[in-house]
Computed example of a mutant assay.
Amino acid sequence: MSDAATLQRIRLHLARSREFPEGSARHGYEFVAPLDGAGHIDLEAWKGQRALCTVTRFWGNDAHEHGHLVHRAGGANGATWVFDYEPEASEDDEAGYRFGDHAFAPGEYVSVREEDGDMHTFTVFSVAAV
Rank of each mutant, 00 (worst) to 15 (best):
P87T: 07
G48P: 00
H71K: 07
S24A: 15
R50M: 06
S2C: 06
D36W: 01
H40Q: 09
M119H: 03
Y85W: 13
L12S: 04
E65V: 09
L35W: 02
S24D: 12
D62M: 09
A129D: 12
E114D: 12
R9K: 15
E30A: 04
D3M: 05
A38D: 15
D3S: 12
D118S: 13
A103R: 14
S24I: 05
E44Y: 00
P87A: 11
T6P: 01
R98F: 02
T56N: 06
D101F: 07
F122D: 00
D118W: 08
I41K: 01
L7D: 05
A45F: 02
R26L: 14
R57T: 08
E22S: 14
V130E: 15
G37H: 07
R18N: 07
A51D: 14
G78H: 09
L43N: 04
H68D: 02
E30I: 14
T54V: 13
H120D: 05
E108D: 11
G28V: 06
E65M: 13
K47N: 11
R98T: 04
E91G: 03
A95E: 13
S2T: 14
V32K: 09
D84Q: 15
V82N: 05
W81M: 05
V124N: 01
E19N: 12
G23D: 12
G23I: 07
D93I: 03
W81A: 04
G117Y: 08
